[in-house]
Design a protein around this nucleic acid. Structure first.
Length: 268
DNA sequence: TGCCAGGTGATCG
DNA sequence: CGATCACATGGC
């Protein structure tokens, strides 16, 4: 099994990438590397003195999967420079989460993950997704893939009881049936048609699974940032959306991730 | 114990 | 429309 090494990486930190709430299936190893499952591959990623090692990984797999997944062709330095000009809050946030990248994740996995995420906390979301994969996912190496829509559409709430999704199990089954019926959603309107997908979850799916980088998902943490650090009324979600549009523009999704990661670090 | 977590659907005015 | 409430689960 071969490894693949990318030299001279910049604006890249595995802790920031895998612990900023955008994905739930990467596990930190005792040596500081991360192992995870995506696109039906199980790999380990390790960074050492400016080198990223992916194992196992061929050149072809890097070019066809991980290069895009890790968003390697985007200039995050330029993004941070734009966002942080005249914004001391964003400067602090981006200095803290300097190595964040927005992963290009599988759309169906993103839909499943963020339906489960609602009114839930990150450690429990991870547990739910792992149990769901073990129960209904196809084996991949020594792990399991995200269950395909056809499989979930064929299951009942009782089948899923052991996953402990709570009331979200119905959402997941309904959404799986809808996707089997109509195919994957292609825009926000179609996302909002899915059961268990409202404005916040739709924005996360747009940002993490559909390359819509101007999306600005507002959850309890972002609400907190916008109130405590930008002075916007706590319950005025509309004003927060307008502020993001006017100040962050097309980079709203990147801004949101820096702020989300930062506010969580200073609130604990 | 009651509150909280990457909220949404149903209901009511 | 907008506001309110119920909804499983588990950690603190």
């Amino acid at each position: 099994m071969s490894k693949y090494i990318i030299e001279d990486i910049k604006d890249f930190d595995l802790d920031h990438i895998f612990d900023c709430g955008q994905c739930f299936r990467w596990e930190k190893q005792p040596d500081g590397s991360y192992s995870g499952t995506a696109f039906n591959k199980v790999v380990n990623m390790q960074v050492d003195s400016g080198q990223l090692t992916i194992d196992p990984c061929t050149k072809e797999e890097y070019e066809s999967i991980w290069r895009t997944y890790l968003d390697m062709d985007r200039d995050y330095g330029a993004i941070k420079k734009t966002l942080c000009a005249d914004d001391p809050v964003m400067k602090k946030a981006a200095d803290y989460g300097y190595g964040i990248r927005i992963l290009n994740q599988d759309l169906w996995e993103t839909i499943v993950s963020f339906i489960i995420s609602q009114n839930n906390n990150i450690p429990r979301i991870k547990g739910c997704i792992e149990r769901l994969c073990q129960l209904a996912g196809e084996p991949v190496a020594d792990s399991f893939a995200i269950p395909v829509a056809e499989k979930l559409a064929s299951m009942t709430e009782e089948d899923l009881a052991g996953v402990r999704l709570g009331y979200r199990s119905r959402y997941l089954i309904e959404t799986a049936k809808c996707v089997c019926d109509k195919g994957l959603p292609e825009n926000e309107e179609q996302l909002l048609d899915l059961c268990g997908v409202g404005p916040k979850v739709a924005n996360c799916i747009l940002l993490f699974g559909m390359n819509k980088y101007d999306s600005f998902p507002i959850d309890v943490w972002v609400r907190r940032v916008m109130h405590e650090l930008y002075g916007i009324a706590e319950n005025d979600k509309k004003a927060m959306t307008v502020y993001a549009r006017e100040h962050f523009g097309d980079l709203g999704g990147f801004a949101q991730q820096y702020l989300f990661y930062y506010i969580r670090s200073i609130t604990e």
